[in-house]
């Protein structure tokens, strides 16, 4: 077990070196969150009103945070597919190192990048007037939940990369997968206007649950809630849903890794 940890950290080191060598990647990881906060938070935030009179700007910030975490899917998927196509996965698989370490190294470093994005967004958000009202601990808990979501989605991305295999296919497919997750959620719009069935789906979307949990932890107002379970208990709901997803994606990704072969 301790070997899994040291191996994973060695591989996190590898990823951090990549970023040092390709600062443009870090710029990307900074610009996207900043743009999201400015465009959605500031421009839309000032133009729209939420029923109940609360500020849309506060309402939308948790949605923006979560939205940016979604991009981890393609970050990890493209990275894993890249390692697959240039033979690095074959090299690792021919070494006596545990299968989990390789994927854990990847997902942990991508979760680290999530932490960075969150920090950037928090600062810019503060700049445009967003505030958390529930104290430091709850605020940190909200960010921890967001990073946990990034980590979970990163495992999903790893699975996607190993199954789709070519980096090109991966880039094309991941946006198709991310789209419904992103928009069939409460990230940008309150759900009470939706038809009942659509609203139920959106409320069971893990993204919505995490967003609701963050709104609660930030004290940003959760908007109208329905009787769907995850909407009523967003914090335990989010932890449970993410845990469940990890319990599914980790073994699936590890199995895909075990059989991984580059696309031909």
């Amino acid at each position: 077990m301790s070997e899994v940890i040291t191996d994973s950290f060695a591989l996190v080191g590898r990823q951090m070196r990549h970023i040092k060598r390709m600062p443009e990647q870090l710029i990307g990881l900074t610009i996207l969150p900043v743009a999201f906060v400015v465009v959605f938070g500031y421009l839309f935030g000032s133009a729209m009103k939420v029923p109940g009179g609360q500020s849309y700007q506060e309402y939308i910030m948790a949605g923006i945070f979560a939205q940016v975490m979604l991009s981890t899917i393609s970050t990890t998927a493209v990275g894993v597919a890249g390692d697959l196509s240039n033979g690095i996965v074959d090299r690792f698989r021919s070494l006596p190192i545990s299968r989990t370490s390789v994927l854990l190294g990847r997902t942990m470093s991508d979760a680290t990048l999530c932490t960075w994005s969150c920090a950037v967004m928090a600062v810019v958000g503060y700049g445009i007037g967003w505030r958390a009202h529930e104290g430091v601990l709850k605020t940190l808990a909200a960010f921890a939940l967001l990073v946990l979501m990034g980590f979970t989605l990163s495992w999903f991305g790893a699975l996607l990369g190993l199954v789709l295999r070519s980096p090109e296919t991966v880039s094309a497919m991941s946006s198709i997968i991310v789209m419904p997750l992103a928009f069939l959620s409460n990230a940008f719009i309150p759900l009470d206007g939706l038809p009942y069935w659509l609203r139920t789906i959106a409320e069971w979307n893990p993204l919505s649950t995490v967003v609701s949990a963050c709104r609660e932890l930030f004290g940003n107002g959760t908007g109208a809630t329905s009787d769907a379970l995850p909407a009523q208990y967003p914090i335990p709901g989010a932890i449970l849903l993410l845990g469940l997803m990890l319990a599914i994606f980790i073994p699936l990704a590890s199995r895909a890794y075990q059989k991984a072969a580059a696309a031909r």
Partner: peptide
């Protein structure tokens, strides 16, 4: 030891 058909080196290291 395995040296695959395409050199498996990490280009960014």
């Amino acid at each position: 030891g395995l040296t695959g058909q395409y050199a498996a080196v990490d280009a960014r290291l």
